[in-house]
Amino acid sequence: MKSIFSNSGYFLKETLTMLRLNVLSNSLSLLSIGLIFFLLAMVISGWWTSSHVAEVIQSEAEINVFYNENIGDAGVSQLVERIQEIEGVRESRLVNEGEAYTRMEKILGEEARVLEVFNDNPFSPFIEVQINLEKIDPVLKELDHLTGIEHIRNNKDVLDRIRNISGILKLFGFLVVIAVGITTLIIISHIIRQGIHNQREQINTLRLLGAPEFFIAFPFLLEGLLLTVGGGILAVSLAAFTLKQAYDQMAGSLSFIPLLPSEVLVSNMVIVVMTLSAILGMFGSLLGLTLSRNN
């Protein structure tokens, strides 16, 4: 260990010499690794975003219960109370025509002018029921048994689809992480083996002089690490730029989608990609060294 610290300058210089000796091959490897990690960064970002959207939508899960207006005010109050008692219901409250109209105005924004074509308020009052999403099926079943209800509007299908997409992205993400891991290990171990082959005379000389194996191997480890970390930096720079562009686009046309704050997404992505690149660089180099040793 003492020898590693006292020779750190030499190791770094030696690594840079090795990178310089095969500059074209190493540049292409750096670019390949950067592009692979960019793919990983984008998949992970998509995975986190979809999970976040699904979580937000799930936490705001609600059912709209439209009732028969003939049941009168007392009947409506009674219905609100009975719904509130159902297990899985967090809150049940009446939304009258006026509130329904105001909500729609807010949602439509500048397009709310379209509502002016109606002489009367076109919206019906309804009971807004906030629920625990996992209890949606038993809640719907209970509501079926209540009298005075005309129809129920729920977003179960939409939520199910988002959950499915999120699950697929998660699975896809895992597969991409595995694929990126294996590809990086192969690329790095191949580069290291090639480097060892190119430097075999030097390695042989160092052995004849009595150099310990770690002293000979350390520059190769450092070479793999520098290539993957360099690839990681390239990938996160590209991914941060791409995400910024995507956020700018979505801020205008798809502003209603509850995205993660871009700074949080980018900083988390940088941490994951850089950590992975360092780990894969280390293991790829060790794999290359082991394979060369066995040969």
Binding site: L208, L209, G210, A211, P212
Partner: peptide
Amino acid sequence: RELRRMIGPVF
């Protein structure tokens, strides 16, 4: 390896 460190080889 230790031995080689005590030797000065000239090839």
